Amino acid sequence: MSRDQETNSEPVRLLFEMTREDNPRLYDDLIRFNKGTKRVNRLRFLAHEGLLAQNWMLVPAVGALSQTAASALQAPAKVNPTVAGHVVQAFEVPMLDGDD
């Protein structure tokens, strides 16, 4: 079995902690749901939509937009390194007591 086939067959499990200071908008959205399936499904949905938006697949009716707005959508977005760092940090493994 190749590495790709092994990777595709095993589930991805995530465990992370997040405070409101890490990402207020994401925290406020997720905290609306009780612990468990609903919160996990919401995070899964947000991750999926983020992937679609990142790949520019989530562009509604470009023909209905003005030419200026359409060209703005096609321009590559600039990434704010500070915000990107917060996102990466939100998905890092939380430090346990005794870890440095």
Rank of each mutant, 00 (worst) to 15 (best):
M1G: 08
D4Q: 15
D4G: 13
D4W: 11
E6F: 14
N8R: 15
S9A: 15
E10A: 15
E10M: 10
P11A: 06
P11M: 04
R13I: 14
L14P: 01
L14N: 07
L14D: 10
M18Y: 04
M18N: 03
N23G: 15
R25W: 13
L26T: 02
Y27M: 03
D28H: 02
D29S: 08
N34I: 10
K35P: 03
G36P: 00
T37R: 12
T37E: 12
K38T: 11
V40T: 11
N41C: 06
N41T: 07
R42Q: 10
L43R: 00
R44S: 07
F45N: 10
A47D: 00
E49M: 12
G50E: 01
L52S: 08
A53P: 01
A53T: 09
N55E: 11
N55S: 10
W56M: 08
L58A: 14
P60Q: 07
V62Q: 09
G63C: 07
G63A: 06
L65F: 05
Q67E: 15
T68A: 06
A72K: 08
L73A: 06
Q74F: 09
K78I: 08
N80Q: 08
V83F: 05
V83L: 14
G85T: 04
H86Y: 10
V88Y: 11
V88K: 14
V88I: 14
V88Q: 15
Q89C: 08
A90I: 08
A90V: 10
A90C: 15
F91D: 02
G98D: 01
D99Y: 01
